[in-house]
Simulated assay, not measured.
Amino acid sequence: MPFAKHRRAAQSLFQLEVEGSGVRFTIEDTGPGVSERDIFRIFEPFYRSDSSRNPGYGGTGLGLTIAQRIVRAHQGDLSVRNRSQLGGAIFTGGGVLAKSNKMMS
């Protein structure tokens, strides 16, 4: 992909806490964050905060919408704020773990 040589390598930090029947996670990254004007719309279907991206490579604006709906289906929520320790966005979410009769291995 010709555009890849111009992109900065990103780093992410993922934290997961499980307590009782609940789970909480945080994802932080080194990206540019989310602009203040976009932060309230970032989970809307088909909303793309970075209009400079080439539509052929930039996605459809559904990824965060789908992620939020999955978390909400597990009685939780997904939110975003800026300025992680790594410099980018911080996504925080959680929910209720599904009950299972199987033991995890």
Score class of each variant (00 low, 15 high):
residue 19 E to A: 13
residue 79 S to E: 07
residue 18 V to L: 11
residue 79 S to P: 01
residue 60 T to G: 14
residue 61 G to Y: 02
residue 23 V to H: 02
residue 52 S to M: 03
residue 73 A to E: 06
residue 27 I to Y: 01
residue 43 F to L: 01
residue 80 V to E: 00
residue 100 S to R: 15
residue 80 V to L: 12
residue 105 S to N: 15
residue 92 T to E: 15
residue 63 G to E: 01
residue 50 D to V: 08
residue 43 F to M: 03
residue 101 N to D: 11
residue 69 R to A: 05
residue 26 T to S: 13
residue 56 G to M: 14
residue 1 M to G: 12
residue 51 S to T: 13
residue 101 N to R: 09
residue 65 T to M: 00
residue 9 A to I: 10
residue 97 L to Y: 07
residue 1 M to V: 03
residue 65 T to V: 00
residue 1 M to S: 12
residue 57 Y to D: 06
residue 7 R to P: 01
residue 4 A to E: 05
residue 40 F to S: 07
residue 68 Q to S: 15
residue 43 F to Q: 01
residue 67 A to T: 00
residue 32 P to T: 10
residue 75 Q to H: 10
residue 51 S to P: 11
residue 28 E to A: 09
residue 87 G to E: 07
residue 88 G to R: 07
residue 6 H to V: 00
residue 96 V to E: 14
residue 6 H to L: 05
residue 87 G to I: 05
residue 20 G to I: 13
residue 82 N to H: 02
residue 24 R to W: 12
residue 42 I to T: 02
residue 53 R to Y: 08
residue 85 Q to I: 11
residue 24 R to T: 01
residue 104 M to I: 11
residue 88 G to D: 08
residue 89 A to G: 03
residue 15 Q to S: 12
residue 89 A to L: 03
residue 10 A to F: 02
residue 31 G to L: 15
residue 35 S to K: 09
residue 76 G to K: 03
residue 84 S to N: 07
residue 22 G to N: 15
residue 103 M to C: 14
residue 97 L to F: 08
residue 6 H to P: 00
residue 61 G to S: 09
